[in-house]
Design a protein around this nucleic acid. Structure first.
Lengths: 213, 213
DNA sequence: CATTGTGAACTCATTCACAGCG
DNA sequence: CGCTGTGAATGAGTTCACAATG
C-alpha cells in the first residue's frame, strides 16, 4: 500500500527508466509485462522492480504481471511527467542547440519556452523550434513572467554560477546543470548535474581496475 | 593504508569532483587545502572526503591538510587520467559536434581520434578538430586499427544498440552512451550512461514532492 | 593544536524468500 | 499455478567520534 515509507533516490531514477522501457514495450505491441521481463530489459533484478513499484502501490495482478499502459500512467503520475513543464535554456552553443532540437524535450511534456545567450551575434536569432534568443540580462525578469519551471544551464563553466543566480532571482528553483562545475544555490533550489567528464573518469578507473559490472 | 577494502562506486565519482575542484584551487593560487574546505566546495561532508581518500592512502598531513598539487597527482593516478585515452565519437549531430569541440575532451587526456556518422552528407567532411568523419560501416575495423579505448555514442536511440555492437566487434570495451536507451553488452564491456531525460524526471518528482536536498 | 585517518555505529538500499492472491 | 507484494535479512555507503600525529 501507499505507505509513508521513505523512497530511495535510486528508485526515482529507475522509475524513469521503467517508464521509457514501457513506452518501447507499448510500441512493440505488448499489453502485459512481468516484473521479470521489465527487470531484464532495464538491467535490474525483478525484486528491485517490485520493490520500487511497491513504494507507490500495488499496480500489478498476481499471476499475470503489469498492464503496460496502466503502469506507464501510474509512473507518469508519480514522477509528475503527466503535466507540461516550462523550460528555459541558457547558452545556445552546440549543446544548447542539441537540447533544443532534441525529441527528448518536445515529445515528453517538457516545453521549451525561452532561450538565452550573451553573444550579440546570437541574440535576436531564432532557434530551430522558433524561439527568439534573448539576452541573458533579461533572464531573471523574463523567466518570472513566463512562469518557467526549470532552468537548463549549457553555458561554459565560467558563466554557470552567474546564470544560476539569475534563475534564482527569477524564482526558478529547479536547475539542470550541464557545466562541469558545482553550482551553489539556496536550499529552496533543486539542482541536478550532468557532467560527462566525470563519467569518462569513471570509465578509465573501471578499465584500469578491472571493475566489471 | 592502502587496504584491499572495496571502494564504493560513489567514491570514484567524488574523486573526479575533488580533482576538478583541486584544479580550481590551484588556479586560485592555493597550495594547501583541508578536508573541511574541499568538502564545502564539493558539497559533501569532510568525513566523506577523508574516508574517500583513505581508501587509497594517507595523502594528508595531520594538523595541516592536503597539498593541492600532490593530491591532484594522486587522484589522477587513481583514476588513471594521467594517461592519454583514445576516443571515437559516433553520431556527429549537434551533441556529437558539441563534444568534439568541448574543452572537456582535449584539455584532459581524452584524445578524440575518430568520428563516425551514417549520413552521406557528413561522411568525408572534417570536424572542427580536423578529424575526417568516416562511414559507420568502417567502425569496427577502424577502431581496432587505431587502438580506440572508449566509444562515445551520440546517435539517435534507434541506432545506439547497433553502434554498441560494432564497437564490441572492434574490441572497444568501454562505452559512453548518451542515447536515452539501455544498451546490452557482454560482461567484458563497460558502459556509462548519460541520460538527461532521467534528470528532468527526477527534477519534476522532487519539485512536486517537496524533496529538498 | 588543528586536522587527518579510521574503526564502530548508523542509515540507506538491495536482495531474499515466501505468504498472498488472481 | 505463476507472479506480485512485502517483511526480514543482508549488504553497501555514510556519519560519528576520537585516537594518532606532524
Amino acid at each position: 500500500m501507499t505507505g509513508t515509507k521513505r523512497v530511495p533516490g535510486a528508485t526515482i531514477t529507475r522509475l524513469s527508466i521503467y517508464h521509457r522501457q514501457l513506452e518501447l514495450l507499448e510500441f512493440d505491441g505488448y499489453r502485459q509485462v512481468s516484473s521479470d521481463k521489465l527487470a531484464w530489459l532495464c538491467q535490474v533484478s525483478s525484486a528491485q522492480v517490485r520493490k520500487d513499484l511497491g513504494y507507490f502501490g500495488g499496480f500489478g495482478v498476481r499471476g499475470v504481471g503489469y498492464d503496460v499502459l496502466e503502469l506507464q500512467a501510474h509512473i507518469r503520475e508519480i514522477l509528475s511527467i503527466n503535466k507540461v513543464w516550462n523550460l528555459a535554456v541558457v547558452g545556445i552553443g552546440n549543446l544548447g542547440s542539441a537540447l533544443l532540437r532534441s525529441r527528448g524535450f518536445a515529445l515528453k511534456g517538457f516545453n521549451c519556452v525561452a532561450a538565452f545567450d550573451k553573444d550579440p551575434a546570437k541574440i535576436g536569432k531564432f532557434t530551430a523550434a522558433g524561439i527568439r534568443i534573448k539576452n541573458i540580462t533579461e533572464l531573471a525578469r523574463s523567466v518570472k513572467e513566463m512562469h518557467v519551471d526549470m532552468g537548463v544551464i549549457t553555458t561554459p563553466p565560467s558563466e554557470a554560477q552567474r546564470i544560476a543566480d539569475m534563475f534564482i532571482r527569477g524564482k526558478v528553483n529547479a536547475l539542470l546543470n550541464f557545466s562541469p562545475i558545482r553550482i551553489y544555490v539556496p536550499d529552496c533550489c533543486l539542482v541536478e548535474n550532468i557532467d560527462f567528464t566525470i563519467k569518462l573518469d569513471i570509465l578509465t578507473y573501471r578499465l584500469t581496475h578491472g571493475d566489471m559490472n
